[in-house]
């Protein structure tokens, strides 16, 4: 089965990309295995903060924030009765997205052109731009 990595950040444009994917899913005759991914930023002052609050607390924070960002996309897929996996990574968005694509053996990355960081880059968000440059697999961008 074709394996898609679908990075989302919970923003409106990124959720629209999920809608688009759901709509076009019958294009793929043998179905698609969907891997949702949300990437959380590393916590600032990581080494100092973790020595006081502990690693678990930080992991829990990342997980809760990640689940919140994934929520809308998961609801859309649930509503469309589509099976999926979901992942939460921590670090630089584009780096982690590409690492995942490689790690999970995904055939393609499917994502919106822009997400939360809509300030930089007029046509393409900075994350999408970097993913195109770094990705080991084809990238499909939904506008």
């Amino acid at each position: 089965m074709l394996k898609f990595l679908v990075p989302v950040d919970g923003s409106e444009p990124s959720n629209r990309a999920v809608d688009h994917l759901i709509k076009k899913l019958q294009w793929f005759r043998n179905g698609v295995e969907i891997h949702l991914l949300n990437v959380q930023h590393l916590i600032p002052y990581g080494s100092r903060v973790s020595s006081v609050v502990g690693h678990d607390k930080i992991a829990q924070y990342h997980q809760e924030e990640g689940m919140a960002a994934l929520k809308a996309a998961m609801q859309k897929l649930d509503a469309a009765k589509i099976k999926y996996h979901f992942h939460i990574g921590v670090g630089d968005e584009a780096d982690i997205i590409c690492k995942y694509a490689k790690d999970k053996g995904c055939d393609q990355i499917f994502m919106g052109t822009r997400g939360l960081g809509s300030v930089s880059g007029l046509l393409l968000g900075s994350v999408a731009t970097k993913v195109i440059h770094l990705s080991p697999v084809p990238v499909l961008l939904a506008k």
Binding site: L70, D78, K83, H85, F86, H87, G89, V90
Partner: peptide, 16 residues
């Protein structure tokens, strides 16, 4: 060494 996956524990969502 490897990518952290905080969603791993709750892997596949069963279809309805």
């Amino acid at each position: 060494k490897e990518v952290v996956d905080l969603g791993e524990a709750s892997e596949t969502k069963a279809p309805h």
